[in-house]
């Protein structure tokens, strides 16, 4: 009873986590990425196309990451080079890419809504012998796909790389102190662009997970706002990889619960809105903490 739920929750966590890590890195680099949803959507479609055409999961994943990265790059350039507001540009990309995806479905494949070509190669599940028989632990460790393992491996990896590499250090400086980075002779805008490309690639992979990891086809509503849930996750995580992963896991649980509740006539939509509500609560808490810190200083 609990095992299928755990499995489902982890499965729903993966795309959120992938995109959230991308968004987290992007935000650390100084850009709040509202366009993750669009990069996810494009990644989902391209993964199905390439998977069906080549039968190669690796090629499909690479293509999904590439398209996500390309959309990320174009979004980033508009923001960094044309000084456009990142929120509006992100929303604009969500609208335009959703339109483009549907346009391509209709004009290239003559379908509307769902694209289900024959021969889609799915992400293989990795079953671990013996472990799979252990209750709970088996559901957690066994039967997950490679992207899930990758997503969770990226959590400590991101924390490590941010603190131990040149790129990580420069990225952290760019988000918090652009002028400082420029003053020491680096190009903060290029660093920021690179972080958006990374976010796009991660969101592309997240989309691929939804299409060739979960359902095996593409549907125009396949992302279902998960790009924005990812946004909620990295806001919840306040730019820390482990906290962000916790947020993604929490929201993955909600997602899995919501799917189960739908079958029972329970208010699935109310569960769906929890991530957004939690972000507002977290921001309020931070605002209150900020204010008391300021007044403390004023008194001391």
């Amino acid at each position: 009873m609990i095992d299928p739920f755990i499995q489902a929750a982890l499965l729903m966590t993966t795309p959120i986590l992938l995109a959230a890590i991308g968004g987290l890195v992007n935000r650390i680099g100084g850009l709040v990425n509202i366009g993750l949803e669009s990069m996810m959507l494009a990644g989902a479609l391209v993964a199905v196309e390439v998977s069906a055409a080549t039968g190669s999961v690796i090629a499909a994943l690479a293509a999904a990451a590439l398209i996500g990265g390309l959309i990320g790059l174009s979004m980033s350039l508009v923001v960094t080079r044309l000084q456009a507001n990142e929120i509006i540009v992100g929303l604009g990309f969500s609208v335009a890419v959703a339109g483009l995806v549907r346009f391509v479905l209709k004009s290239a494949y003559g379908v509307s809504g769902t694209f289900n070509p024959p021969g889609v190669a799915m992400l293989p599940r990795i079953n671990i012998p013996f472990v799979s028989d252990i209750p709970v632990l088996g559901a957690i460790l066994s039967g997950q796909d490679g992207l899930t393992w990758f997503a969770w491996a990226m959590v400590p990896a991101t924390a490590f790389l941010l603190h131990r590499t040149r790129a990580g250090l420069r990225l952290r400086a760019t988000g918090a102190a652009e002028a400082t980075v420029r003053a020491v002779g680096l190009s903060p805008l290029s660093i920021r662009d690179a972080s958006t490309v990374f976010a796009g690639a991660m969101a592309g992979l997240a989309g691929a997970h939804l299409s060739i990891g979960v359902v095996g086809l593409f549907n125009e509503g396949i992302t279902g706002g998960r790009g924005f849930i990812a946004l909620a996750a990295f806001y919840f995580g306040r730019s820390a990889p482990w906290r962000t992963a916790l947020g993604a896991l929490l929201f993955g649980l909600f997602d899995a619960a919501q799917i189960r509740l739908q079958g029972h006539g329970a208010p699935a939509e109310l569960v769906q809105m929890l991530p957004y509500l939690i972000v507002i609560i977290v921001l309020t808490g931070l605002g209150l903490a900020d204010r008391s810190r300021v007044s403390e200083r004023a008194l001391s």
Binding site: R166, R172, A173, A176, A177, V181
Partner: peptide, 19 residues
């Protein structure tokens, strides 16, 4: 011209990090 979120040491070596 310092990054407030980085440590003093990180600020010192920024852009000339010993690798």
């Amino acid at each position: 011209m310092l990054a407030p979120n980085l440590t003093l040491l990180e600020n010192l070596i920024l852009a000339r990090e010993p690798v």
